[in-house]
Design a protein around this nucleic acid. Structure first.
Lengths: 141, 141
DNA sequence: TTCGCAAGTGAGAATGGTTCTCACTGTACA
DNA sequence: TGTACAGTGAGAACCATTCTCACTTGCGAA
């Protein structure tokens, strides 16, 4: 239940937070922008300010419930934190996002940081390309 | 000579473009924001509009003279395109940027994209961490 | 259950980085 | 050298995000 999740991370249980969290959990698109979340809530009749969406997302992120990804072209998306770590590949034509995990790359990153004298705290790996054939809606138009 | 470089990529040779390009070539910091470039030019007495800086950077990027990197926290930096491809590691405390290249990672990326049905056109790999000890100015204050 | 108040909220203003507009200027080819 | 047209500077516009502020709500204490 979503209210549990909120309580567990020390956030007050409020209607806007519940709506946002449950939208993130039920949405077909795993990666959503603040704007998208706001629009979808509005369309389903919820009156939730855009500022509240941003506030809630920032809190969820701080609490570790969701992750923020900043792709090129300025788009910032949020994704529910579930399942193991992974990176992303984004179609530059249709914007579709796929996830992947590669142990070899993860290990190399840690080694590289160490070798350069850094304590690795995070990383962002995003591949950009065109998804193939019929899978890419932008290619069929 | 910078005017050659501009002509070579089909750009008119103008004073602002020459100043910006030569600043990029002479600057101690390899990675500069548009704002930084604008400020440094202003401080050395050049009257060049911020809009012109952005325009020139966009053209240089399109022409392949420079590369744009979008790190987290919103900072967008530009870097002269010279030498082979590399990725970045950014100190989350002092903002220092180091470069690295790792063939293993490069190869894996291509394999992964292929396996997922994407034609890889670009990628962004940035590691975030804290640089160690005395090297990090932010740690000594 | 009700109360009190700190925390949360919505609307709209403010912000900050980037791009656009427009009248003026400078480059480069004839 | 003249001229057409790309380039420029200043400031307005834009867009995503954050802040402000008066009002509302969740929730521990009574």
């Amino acid at each position: 239940m979503e209210s549990e999740e909120l309580r567990n991370v020390g956030l007050k249980v409020t209607t806007p937070r519940l709506k946002i969290l449950s939208l993130l959990e039920s949405a077909k698109a795993k990666h959503m922008t603040a704007e998208t979340i706001y629009r979808q809530l509005s369309e389903s009749g919820e009156v939730i300010g855009l500022a509240t969406v941003y506030r809630a997302l920032a809190q969820f992120e701080a609490a570790g419930l969701i992750t923020r990804h900043q792709f090129e072209g300025g788009q910032t998306v949020f994704e529910l934190e579930r399942g193991p770590h992974h990176d992303h590949i984004v179609c530059v034509r249709c914007g579709r996002v796929e996830e992947f995990y590669d142990k070899v790359i993860e290990d190399r990153q840690r080694e590289i940081a160490e070798k350069l004298g850094f304590t690795l705290s995070d990383h962002a790996l995003t591949l950009y390309g065109e998804c193939s054939g019929g899978a890419c809606p932008a290619k069929n138009g």
